[in-house]
Computed example of a mutant assay.
Amino acid sequence: MQSIYAMHQNGSENLEKEEKFLFFSIDSIQDLYLTMVSSLMEICKKETEFLHKSSLKHLATPAERNPNKKFINNAVFQILAENNSLSIAIETRKIDTWYLNEDYILLLLNAVKESKYYLDYMSNPKQTFEEDKQLIVDLFTHIIVPNDKLYEHLEDDKLTWIDDIPLVNTLIIKQLKGLKPIEEDNFRVPKVYKDTEDKDFAKDLFRKTVLNEKELAKQFVDKTPNWDSDRIAEIDTIILKMAICELLKFPSIPVKVTLNEYLELAKEYSTPKSSIFINGILDNLVKELEANKTLLKTGRGLI
């Protein structure tokens, strides 16, 4: 949707160029995921370095010579640091954000150490896996994710990440909550695509919508008698074209799935009344296509 909107705004007709950028944007979601997960690892590294340097001071205090290492020994940090899937992905994708911008890690570390979650955790002499896990979940959810400076940095790094941040952070929190104390493959980097069919779908939907825009628009222009086509929000027309494209050109996708997906898109990205407007048009169109027997669904599309 955003790629098609960008094409309209730029007046671009270079389909291959825009498609290339579309897949670059999708692949970048994994970079964002790895950047956010590695922020936890880097926070632990920075605190470890700080404790070590403090212990070597000429006039180190007893607390500095024998520091409380409960935080840096947190089991979740160890799981992340020893995870092959994560290490390989970070190396392969060349994630060096924090190496180049360590001041943000220091900023986050300071915020962590000033938080009630950290202070309560460190004041408890006992250390259990569940307590370790809960601390990291709380710190990530309430200290790291909401940090305005971090958000600004991510936004400046890649503009396409803005809409992906909530999705990625929600996934990471879910993974952290699901960690087990002793289990191989305890943490795995998720794939960007489920399979090749998943990637092909993104390509096909983009191409079929762009190459058939005029044909798709004809399906709804006469169903908006009280609206001049120029007055319909551009995002709404793109959502309608994509939805109609799925209805007509993707027989294996169930009608209900298509309707639900695009109503959610309208709620998220368009005007408050858009979802009602789009729902009305698509509902009437589906009834018409079913009556004319031109809405042909096969396989799981019949479910």
Rank of each mutant, 00 (worst) to 15 (best):
N292C: 03
E290R: 12
S275V: 07
T298I: 15
F277A: 02
K273D: 12
A291C: 14
N284V: 02
L296A: 13
I281C: 03
A291Y: 10
S274D: 07
K287L: 03
T294S: 13
D283Y: 15
K273R: 08
S275I: 06
G301A: 03
N279A: 15
K287C: 05
K267D: 06
L263A: 11
G299L: 14
F277H: 05
E264G: 05
N260I: 14
N284H: 04
L285W: 00
Y269A: 07
E264R: 11
T294V: 11
E290V: 10
V286R: 02
Y262Q: 13
T294E: 15
L282M: 01
N279S: 15
K297S: 14
A266V: 14
P272W: 00
S274N: 05
G301N: 09
S270I: 00
I276S: 10
N292H: 04
G280D: 15
F277Y: 05
A291K: 09
E264K: 07
T271C: 09
N284E: 11
K287I: 03
K297E: 11
A266I: 11
N279K: 12
L263C: 07
G280F: 13
N279L: 15
K273S: 12
K293W: 04
R300V: 08
L263G: 08
K267Y: 06
D283N: 14
K297M: 12
N292W: 03
E261L: 06
E268Y: 09
E261F: 10
K293Y: 06
E261S: 14
R300D: 13
V286P: 00
R300L: 07
L259Q: 11
V286H: 01
S275T: 06
V286E: 02
T271F: 06
T294I: 04
K273M: 11
L259Y: 11
I278L: 12
I276R: 05
R300I: 10
L259I: 11
E261T: 13
